[in-house]
């Protein structure tokens, strides 16, 4: 049983070699990036390898980095048996963000991917039902992208600089 991050890194390095980039451990959670071509094989390796057994998809979300022209899709996996978490990131081009769906591995990915699509416009390929989930269907924008301001831009009394932000 792999119980520490170092053992996990060894296992992953053995299988995927240098496909793992930006390996860090902020606050004890192993974090690394892979490309979108490798993400499904990495996720299914993490899920199905009996030694590490990441059986649970805790969270799936995205982060927009406009200065890198990137949207990062972030997966949090949890191995309940080993009591260890791992964070996997995939950086996508913000112009055409698309990535393979994880619905085949975890059913919970269905709604979390719909939420990520709704707020960031990430297209999850082969998703069974990729529709907006929290916003209305004809919203037209993906509101969590950083270019959209919080307040109505037409209001003169609520400029961000008045509030120091």
């Amino acid at each position: 049983m792999a119980a520490t991050n170092e053992q996990l890194i060894d296992l992953l390095a053995e299988r995927f070699g240098d496909k793992l980039t930006e390996v860090t451990q902020p606050y004890g959670v192993l974090t690394f990036s892979v490309t979108k071509n490798d993400i499904l094989s990495v996720l299914s390796f993490l899920k199905e390898n009996g030694k590490i057994d990441f059986n649970f998809l805790t969270d799936l979300t995205a982060v927009h980095y406009p200065d890198q022209n990137a949207i990062a899709v972030v997966y949090h996996l949890h191995s309940m048996i080993n009591g260890i978490r791992v964070r996997v990131k995939v950086f996508l081009n913000e112009a055409h963000p698309s990535i393979e769906t994880a619905c085949g591995l975890w059913k919970s990915a269905n709604w979390m991917e719909r939420e990520t699509f709704d707020f960031f416009g990430v297209k999850f390929e082969n998703h069974p039902d990729l529709r907006r989930i929290l916003n209305m269907d004809d919203l037209g924008v993906h509101p969590m992208l950083k270019q959209y301001p919080l307040e109505d831009p037409n209001r003169v009394d609520k400029k961000d600089e008045y509030f120091g932000r």
């Binding site: 989930i133 916003n135 209305m136 919080l150 509030f163």
Partner: peptide
Amino acid sequence: TIGYIHRAFEKIAEH
């Protein structure tokens, strides 16, 4: 169908 009381907390939290 969900989202009837969506209040954009994650967006507000960024500010």
